[in-house]
């Protein structure tokens, strides 16, 4: 699905960062992906291996750190993790919650040689 386009964006950013350091090889990319993004890590790493094939990131390991959906309760101020699509406060049962995490999609760092 949209994993191919995202893989291309990851490659572009990583190559740009590596070039600035004069790197000859990228060996690892650490990605942070919120669960709300609905990305399938296996598909993403597969797509990445294809787009990176003819670059200095060829063979690089793309590590996907999945961030769970987190919420904040507007009634009792509890902060919690949303499990199994259960969008309510585990402490007081309120549905007046705010989603505070789980949409991020960011390259944290890369390892170069």
């Amino acid at each position: 699905m949209h994993e191919m386009g995202i893989a291309q964006n990851i490659l572009d950013i990583a190559l740009n960062a590596a070039n600035q350091e004069g790197a000859t090889k990228i060996s690892r990319i650490n990605l942070v992906a919120g669960e709300l993004r609905g990305l399938v890590p296996m598909q993403l790493t597969f797509c990445f291996s294809i787009v990176a094939k003819d670059s200095i990131a060829s063979g690089a390991y793309l590590h996907v750190e999945e961030v769970p959906v987190s919420g904040h309760c507007n009634d009792c101020s509890a902060d919690f993790t949303v499990e199994e699509y259960n969008y309510l406060c585990p402490k007081c049962g309120s549905t007046r919650i705010q989603i505070t995490g789980g949409t991020e999609l960011r390259i944290k760092d890369i390892e170069i040689e």
């Binding site: 960062a17 999609l105 960011r106 390259i107 890369i110 390892e111 170069i112």
Partner: peptide, 14 residues
């Protein structure tokens, strides 16, 4: 060597 990137993947689109 590890280098810090901290960039949004979709920044080009944004």
């Amino acid at each position: 060597m590890k280098i810090n990137v901290m960039q949004d993947v979709l920044q080009a689109n944004d």
